[in-house]
Amino acid sequence: MKKIITISREYGAGGHSIGKQVAQQLGIPFYDKDILRESVKASGFDTELVETEEEDSSRADSFFRSLCSISSAYYRDSQEAIHDVQKAVILRFAQQGPCVILGRCADEFLREAGIDSVNVFIHADDVHRAVRVSALIGSTNATEIQKLMAKKDASRHTYYTRYTGKKWGDSHNYDLTLDSGTLGYDLCVKLIVAAAQAED
Rank of each mutant, 00 (worst) to 15 (best):
E38M: 10
V40K: 04
K41Q: 08
S43C: 15
S43A: 15
G44C: 00
G44A: 02
F45L: 09
F45K: 08
D46E: 09
D46C: 00
T47Y: 06
T47L: 11
E48T: 15
E48L: 12
E48D: 15
V50P: 01
E51C: 00
E51T: 08
T52E: 11
T52K: 15
T52M: 06
E53A: 13
E54L: 12
E55V: 04
S58M: 04
S58Q: 10
R59K: 10
A60H: 03
A60K: 03
D61I: 04
D61V: 00
S62C: 07
F63C: 00
C68D: 04
I70F: 11
S72C: 13
A73F: 15
Y74T: 06
Y74W: 07
Y74D: 07
E80H: 14
E80M: 14
H83A: 12
V85R: 09
V85W: 14
V85M: 15
K87V: 10
A88K: 11
I90A: 09
I90W: 06
I90M: 05
R92Q: 12
R92L: 05
F93V: 13
F93L: 08
A94Y: 07
Q96N: 01
Q96A: 11
G97Q: 02
G97M: 02
V100E: 00
I101N: 01
L102K: 03
G103E: 00
R111S: 10
E112D: 13
A113Q: 06
G114N: 10
I115F: 03
S117T: 10
N119W: 06
N119Y: 05
V120L: 01
A124K: 03
D125G: 15
D126L: 13
D126V: 13
D126N: 14
V127M: 02
H128R: 05
R129V: 04
R129W: 06
A130D: 01
S134I: 06
S134A: 13
S134P: 04
L136G: 02
G138R: 06
G138K: 04
S139Q: 00
A142M: 10
A142W: 06
T143D: 15
T143G: 15
E144L: 12
E144A: 10
I145G: 05
I145M: 00
Q146N: 09
L148C: 03
M149N: 05
A150E: 07
A150N: 14
A150L: 09
K151S: 09
K152A: 12
A154L: 04
R156C: 11
H157M: 07
T158M: 06
Y160G: 05
Y163M: 01
G165A: 07
